[in-house]
Design a protein around this nucleic acid. Structure first.
Lengths: 161, 161
DNA sequence: ACTCATATGAAACAAAATTGCATTATACCC
DNA sequence: GGGTATAATGCAATTTTGTTTCATATGAGT
């Protein structure tokens, strides 16, 4: 992912109202959105198109319940590296990015270098992952794992403005 | 959120293929999905409906680029509590859940008790948040903050099966 | 006042989702 | 095997939704 600001665009209150709706449910008919924000359906549609082109709207997706698809375990993993030279970091990023169990990956300041959020079927799967991490990368100094007992909130509704 | 397993449902290869597509782009026309998985559009539509009712599909949403809406700072926050009695935890969950800056919140095992992911406009906003946290809750022992330099991956595509 | 650029609503149009219906496949029971 | 119930399917009609067209309105700059 790696959020980028490609385009310049200013959002007015209409745009924000539209986004507020779409961030909760993008299957809402444009006519219904139009009614909610006091615009015509055509205007709503143009604004959505514009925001999509400007990559304000990054994508439109279905959120799947991990428990219902056999991935009941959520893990938060902190990774500390030995060497933090730029090229080494970039290499690590690429590798983590391409691991399917890695749902989210943040490169951060602070004690740790990376934060990961994983979804796995079993603890054995996690063991495979972490073992693989250590084996393939001698640069991994330390990893610290937390098991999520409760995913209290997994939101995608940004509080705009 | 707090993922739940309400219903029992078994997913076959068709369902998983459909999910794989919808997790990437839920605006994909059913006809196109149908073609990709070798079913009729009607069949695809019924399967999607079924999975939605069974809450395999939790929701359908637009993913908004936080940078483009003035929330360029991503933070990872670990919270450690003094008292971890059940009712205290539940209270903390409720409060965190209702904070708009809190995008994700996990109650975890390990050193920390909670992991949060926040999106804020400025560091001042974060200061407000953390100050508010300490003031309103004497049960917060310690918080540790990491600033995301790069959101390497913010995925929602689960690796099913 | 004129022009350019931009945004709008209403309506026509195109495309998509949804439903009804007949058919097929599978499992289970006598 | 014959019968029956259940569930899933494709096709086609229908309905809903998204998209485009067009005429009009607004505002900034000249």
């Amino acid at each position: 992912m790696s959020w980028k600001n490609n385009t310049s665009i200013t959002l007015d209150r209409f745009d924000i109202s539209i986004l507020d709706i779409l961030m909760k449910d993008n299957m809402t008919p444009q006519r219904q959105i139009a009614e909610a924000v006091n615009l015509s359906a055509a205007a709503v549609q143009r604004r959505i198109k514009k925001m999509t082109l400007a990559s304000v709207i990054h994508s439109n997706i279905a959120i799947v319940n991990p428990i219902m698809v056999g991935l009941p375990i959520t893990l938060i993993v902190e990774i500390e590296l030995v060497d933090v030279r730029n090229d080494v970091i970039e290499e690590a990023k690429t590798r983590l990015l391409n691991m399917p169990v890695v749902q989210q990956c943040y490169y951060v300041t602070g004690q740790a270098d990376f934060f990961l959020i994983l979804h796995v079927a079993t603890m054995a799967d996690y063991e495979n992952f972490s073992r693989n991490l250590f084996f393939t990368d001698p640069n991994v100094k330390k990893i610290r794992t937390s098991v999520a007992i409760d995913s209290v909130k997994v939101g995608h509704t940004l509080a705009i403005k």
